[in-house]
Amino acid sequence: MNETHDRQSRDRAPAASALPTPAAAASSRQPGTATLERGASARSRRGSAAARAGDAPSGAIAGDVTQARVMRSEWTKLRSLRSTQWTMGLAVLLLIGLALPLCVSASENWTVADVQAGSQDPVYQSLAGLLLAQVAVGVLGVLTMTGEYATGMIRATLGLVPRRLPVLWAKAAVLAGVTFVAMLVASLVSFLIGQAILGSHDVGVSLSSDGAARAILGAAFYLTAIALLGLTLGALIRHTAGAVTALLGAVLGLPLIFSMFGERLESAQRYLPALLGNAISSTSPARLTDLVSPGRAFVMLCLYIAVLGAASAYVLTRRDV
């Protein structure tokens, strides 16, 4: 029964061509009996469905759902929203825009000895715009998820991908890819502009200097991690305001609260996302003494994403939408 129905639906031409205009459909049908008769004739045709398969115009218009297809769908969603362009543009602007005054200020106050001793970090100085850029990419991450809940789009999305998890992975992959590429370019530009300013007072470093390239990659990675944290918080909380509050609280609020406890929480404070971000985008040995190593910061950030990602996956597959 089901098999024949399947065959019949594959056999059928798509509805658009079967019903060219609403007016034509209207004129050809009487209420009541007409539909019954047509329904009956459609059913009676089933027996010969296999025989007619030869002259079918094409196979089914819809293929199976695959991870690659869901990723393409999510890419279309991300690129077709103005909020993506706004938040990403803002992130780039903040990252580069903040490097200018920071490096101008440093170039007037720093001495060559400071930099050589490692008590000042010209690399981080040119990347510190990430402190504001992280808010923009974090909000983008949140919106990727909560935008669907706020508008009801999530029902269309999960209706088409009922296994649900491919949607989460696709959203994460697309968001991470776009954020990393954009932030890597912005970090590089920020670094080059910053070092040009610092270099005019001989307190700049070159791209080939120790740790510089790693710090640039690290900044881009950290911002990508914040976007993903936003995405997972969006999946868990499902409301834009709530998820943004949670994200900002964790990234900006927690370091301040931890520091108010003084030495007690000093050793724990370095594992907060914000300070891991500081660690992964810095090169100064003096600064690094208070922080974890860049390698450990990378692992810790991955761990945050993995834990929150697993929680999101658990919640997404179990909750009603």
Partner: peptide, 23 residues
């Protein structure tokens, strides 16, 4: 309830949905 993101054009909305099935 409408399952449509308000910020997206009708065409992009349909295209995004279509991509999931390779339509």
């Amino acid at each position: 309830s409408r399952a449509i993101h308000t910020g997206r054009s009708a065409q992009d909305h349909l295209l995004a949905l279509a991509h999931t099935h390779g339509i």
